[in-house]
Every structure is written in structure tokens, then in C-alpha cells.
């Protein structure tokens, strides 16, 4: 990538993850938060990471940006992204420039991702200065345009402090920060949590439109199946630090192969039909400390459990056309 020309046309970049293992080092021992993850994120596609708390979806997003913090550690693997190369090999200045120029990260609406003591415009200028933008006016103009694009008064947003904005506006301000440098990959962390239903709809619609307009590669981290069904084109289902299923949204939601994905879908209450039809997933979410080190990590909650699951960790096999599923109980040729 060329740092002196951050305004080159934004085109989404694909991401190729191979054998990624991330470990957390705690007083109780070393736990793998991601274990041997291999995954392709397709360019110019909205990909959703779904899973329970502790499944590793945020860790995976952080690892893609090579932004794992202590006590976490990227133990092995590679992450190639178009125009950058292996992100995990970057460090120092070159890594810093990739953050913001190649990857845009959008925080949850409930988080305070802006410096409370500075006006948003001033923080945008800090961002520009950090990435060698020579003419701050272009940057501010771009930011103003993005704000208007998302239904906000550009000047008002730029002259506001964080505490003067509502949750939904903060979220959109965060999107401005992620996009203003023309990032090619945008990662959104739980973009709809902490927002009311109407704001959720508005934010999702904005994400979808900007994604299309700019030809971005977008990743949405969520535990909300509704968000998945609505906006995401491909779904990555994570369980205990493993990718258990991946595929195009429609096919994956209609014909889930992995028992965990089935469980997640069955747990959603329908608007039509009895509330009792929603079946909560049996057992408790994965805990890194108690995840079995041998065999399948899901077997204790699984309806398809068989003897081999206790001994051998299942391998990924093709499913959903160009997707994958990781389960002993699923026959790939079904």
C-alpha cells in the first residue's frame, strides 16, 4: 500500500487466514483462544462472525489486524491480505499505518471510542496527521460528507464532543473514523448491540449501502442471528476458538450442517409461532479453561456425539458449495 496516497480508490481486499493459533497466557495456564483457524474472507463481501461469548470472534477480528494484546499472543499462522501481505509480519510503523488505512475498526455503540476531551473534528485531524494527510480540508470534507451520508449534520458532528452525541450517533461517528482514510477492510464489532430497534435498522442499512458504494470487504462480529440474516452475505460460525461452519448466509441458515449452528438457529424465538418453540442450546458456553484438549470441543453439548468425537478433533470438510463444516457427525456428501 502507498501511504502517501491514502485516497486511492477503495477496493475491498480479500483475507487469507492459515493455521492461526492465538493463546492467552494467564495465571491458570496457557489457553488457546483460536486453534488452528484457516479461513478465506472473500473480497467485497460482508462476512459475519457469529458465536457465543468466548467463542473467539473478537479475538479473530483482532488477530486479522495483528492487534492481539497481552495476555494474548499470536502463537502461529499467517494472515495475507491483498495489498499488504502477511499482516502478522508487520510491526512498528508499518503496522500502525495499516491500522486506519487498510483496516477500519468500528467499536460497539456502547463503548466510548473517542477521546472525551477533544472535539470530533480535532480528533479527525489527529487521525489525518497520523497518516500523513497533507490537506486536512479534504479529510474534513470527506468526514462531513460521510456524516451527511449517514443522516447527520456534518458540521454539528465535527464540532461536538463525544458526550454530546447519542449512542447511535457515536456509532456512526465511529464509522466515519473507520472510513475516512478509505480503508479497504472494515470490521464492525457488535454494530447493533446497545441500540434500539429503529437505530439498529438505520445503522445496518447505512453499513450495507456504504459497503456497496465503496466495494468494501466488511466483517461484522455479532451474536445476533437476526443481524446475520439481514445483512451478512457469508457466515463464519465459531465455537471455542474453532471455525465449525462457514458458508453463504442463505444456505447456511436454511440448511445448517453443524449441530452447533442448528442449535443457534433453533434458539431464536419466531414472531409467528409459540415462544416455547425456541429451544435454548443445552449446556454452557465454552470456557477456555475447560475446553477439552483432545477430540471435538463441542461433543458435551452435541446431539450427534459418537465415540470418535472423544478422541479425534474433526477436520474441515466442504459444505454449502464453497463453504466448510467441521464435524464427525456430518457426511459431506449428504
Amino acid at each position: 500500500m502507498n501511504a502517501s496516497e491514502p485516497y486511492s480508490a477503495a477496493v475491498g481486499a480479500g483475507i487469507t487466514i492459515r493455521n492461526l493459533t492465538v493463546t492467552y497466557h494467564t495465571d491458570r495456564g496457557i489457553f488457546p483462544a483460536l486453534k488452528d483457524v484457516s479461513l478465506d474472507i472473500r473480497p467485497q463481501t460482508i462476512t459475519g462472525f457469529i458465536g457465543e461469548s468466548g467463542s473467539g470472534k473478537t479475538t479473530l477480528a483482532m488477530a486479522i489486524m495483528n492487534a492481539i494484546r497481552t495476555p494474548g499472543l499470536i502463537a502461529s499462522g499467517s494472515i495475507y491480505t491483498d495489498g499488504v501481505g502477511d499482516v502478522l509480519k508487520l510491526q512498528g510503523e508499518s503496522l500502525r499505518r495499516v491500522h486506519g488505512q487498510h483496516f477500519g475498526f468500528v467499536f460497539q455503540a456502547s463503548s466510548n471510542s473517542l477521546n472525551p476531551l477533544k472535539r470530533i473534528g480535532a480528533q479527525l485531524l489527529d487521525l489525518g496527521r497520523s497518516h500523513g494527510i497533507k490537506d486536512p480540508r479534504i479529510l474534513l470534507k470527506e468526514a462531513r460528507a460521510l456524516a451527511e451520508r449517514m443522516g447527520m449534520d456534518g458540521d454539528r458532528v465535527l464540532t461536538s464532543y463525544q458526550h454530546e452525541l447519542s449512542g447511535g450517533m457515536r456509532q456512526r461517528a465511529g464509522i466515519i473514523f473507520a472510513l475516512v482514510l478509505r480503508a479497504k477492510v472494515v470490521i464492525l464489532d457488535e454494530p447493533t448491540t446497545a441500540l434500539d430497534m429503529l437505530s439498529q435498522q438505520a445503522v445496518l442499512e447505512i453499513i450495507r449501502q456504504i459497503h456497496e458504494e465503496r466495494g468494501l470487504t466488511s466483517i461484522i462480529i455479532t451474536h445476533d442471528m437476526g443481524v446475520m440474516a439481514e445483512i451478512v452475505q457469508r457466515v463464519v460460525v465459531l465455537y471455542a476458538g474453532r471455525v465449525v461452519e462457514e458458508g453463504p448466509t442463505q444456505d447456511l441458515l436454511q440448511r445448517p450442517r453443524h449441530p452447533y449452528t442448528k442449535g443457534l438457529i433453533d434458539a431464536i424465538p419466531r414472531i409467528t409461532g409459540d415462544l416455547a418453540e425456541a429451544k435454548p442450546l443445552a449446556g454452557s458456553p465454552p470456557d477456555l479453561a475447560t475446553v477439552p484438549t483432545q477430540g471435538c470441543v463441542f461433543r458435551d453439548r452435541c446431539s450427534l456425539r459418537r465415540p470418535v468425537c472423544d478422541l479425534v478433533e474433526p477436520l474441515a470438510q466442504p459444505a454449502h458449495g464453497d463453504g466448510l463444516v467441521t464435524c464427525h457427525g456430518v457426511n459431506a456428501h449428504d
Partner: peptide, 8 residues
């Protein structure tokens, strides 16, 4: 956030 935005 400042770090992930690549601020100096």
C-alpha cells in the same frame, strides 16, 4: 480505538 486507528 486510538491504537486501532493507527494514531501516532
Amino acid at each position: 480505538a486510538a491504537e486501532l486507528r493507527g494514531l501516532k
